[in-house]
Design a binder for these strands. Structure first.
Lengths: 188, 188, 188, 188
DNA sequence: GATGAATGAGTGTTCATTCAT
DNA sequence: TATGAATGAACACTCATTCAT
């Protein structure tokens, strides 16, 4: 079992790196920046992570797990009680954290599609899992209409990502409540 | 007035750079790559564009104009005849070009939010313009219901961006037709 | 056709790098050392050579060509007049330049066998060529005795390399004349 | 007096390090590699050897002793019975182990002449000892002809090293038997 | 207009070495 | 004895940018 010191240091690096990437993106975050931010040498950074990619993977895995947990939690709530509101609440909760997770999410996607095939595969696998989880749940909501469940699951994922982009661009104040109401009115 | 040669050369650079960025992203496209692809020297490239940013701006402006034109054209069609189908057709057309414009679009957004504030401002301005144009048109579709028009305009933009991301990640075969039908069924 | 300036600079780099490698070996010669020695930046070095390996190859090719020329020249002399003396003179000439070519030769071999497979292939091809050239010539000297020609060609190459090593180690003053006389006495 | 554990561990390190150097050369063998191969930490490695150089010295001393023993053994055999065959057998035995000792031998020489003056001195001293031992024995073989004994002793050492190089470069299948026969025919 | 040559501040990465526990 | 953690000086290599001609 590892000592607390080691675990802490690796955790410190992970947190600091995530923060820097959240601020500047993957390409604009150098290992020197990260090391400086944790007050360690680059050598120490390499003691804990064998490469920049290794670190990015850890950040990505942690990030993707957070989203997966959120979706699973959301779906469980849907099963137990008020169905329709929960999906929308999920969307809104998701997007209200734009300034944190949202940025990381988009930066990881940028990195994945431009120059990191393995990362892309990881993210892709998660997207598929998220969507099918959603679809399975929506099957109940749509009383077994498979086509609707399929289509709406794609739509939900898209809407979240799309709103994240608009959030990052800070285009306009996004009327989350209105959008939620609109969706609920239409869907049910 | 500039000579045709100069105009052509600048155009050549623009086209080649756009192609390379479409393939590799902004950060992974070097000026050396671009110069080589146009068969000119880096010096010549600098004669036409004073910096990499200058070139990126030109690419972005051209790209944003293409989308703006597409939206205006779409809206005009909506006004004249069958309203509902056109919006959806627009979405589908937009997304079916994912492998081209879509990539450029996402790469420019990545660049904008990570390290190019002026670029971000340009894109942001376009997003606002696109959405308000859509909203104004949707006002007719929704018989003056402003809240619906507002919400749906945000949704349309989001859905397009979101589906572009899924397309770039090549997650799963996206059922564009099903999604379109779903939206039409629900909206009207 | 390239300008003299460019040719000169590349030549300067080649010469300086060869000198440094002659002094310190391949692994202990850094690109920073080379750049400093030519009074240029590392960037300029990379403008002329795309990698350290590229530079090493150029050094190796130049070096191997010098030896090949020497052997061919030696063989031509053998054909025309006094056979036996020339081979031995060649050996002695070869070894008397130990402090220059010899060092480079051994350092390139070290690099080749430890961490540079392509370089090893180049050197290997040259060794084969050198030996077969020698063997073909020795066929006359040994009046058609193929086995002797074959064996002695291997021996000549070995002796040169072996004496180079002893020269580099500066073990003892090597009695080149005595060795030459011994070989001549025995062979003829 | 050191415990057996300590002696064993130091021996384990020595053997593992020698194997790694035989495979990859001195410069390409890191202390981390060695520690990992013995299943100890780098810290423990430093407990037994105060530096990489210290370890290299131990490897070299062991290696040089093996060769010295082989030569002494060879010379003893020469004294007792068939003189001429033994020298040649020695050469051939020596070279047939090219893939093992030969590699280590050459890698140590590379290290010695590029960046390790003290190592060079050790190897140099051994070479001198080896040659004089050979020469003294050859004095009998050549019936007191000092010049021949001197020259041939240099030659024998050279031939071995030279053939090792060709073996490492894997230039061509070396006709050891033919070379041996050639030497015997000529010398006696 | 056009170019080849030069630059230098960064990049991620490596590795022998140190040291508190 | 033994070790995990930390270090920092190198290292090969990249790239937007400059400039004399």
């Amino acid at each position: 079992m590892k000592s607390n010191n080691t675990t802490n240091m690796k955790q410190n690096i992970l947190v600091a790196a995530t923060e820097l990437i959240q601020k500047n993106g993957v390409k604009n975050t150098t290992l020197a920046d990260i090391a400086k931010s944790v007050n360690i040498s680059k050598g120490t950074l390499y003691y804990h992570y064998s490469s920049k990619n290794d670190l990015i993977f850890d950040i990505a895995d942690t990030h993707l797990q957070v989203i997966t947990d959120a979706i699973l939690n959301c779906v469980q709530n849907i099963e137990s009680d008020q169905p329709q509101d929960e999906i929308v609440k999920f969307i809104i909760d998701k997007i209200s954290t734009i300034e944190g997770r949202g940025r990381v999410h988009m930066y990881l996607i940028c990195e994945a599609i431009t120059s990191n095939e393995p990362l892309k595969e990881r993210i892709k696998a998660n997207y598929i899992q998220w969507r099918t989880t959603l679809r399975d749940e929506l099957l109940n909501t749509f009383h077994g209409n498979e086509k609707y469940a399929e289509s709406f699951s794609f739509l939900v994922i898209s809407i979240v990502d799309g709103l994240v982009i608009q959030g990052l661009l800070k285009t306009e104040k996004i009327p989350y409540e209105g959008i939620a109401t609109f969706l609920l009115d239409r869907v049910y």
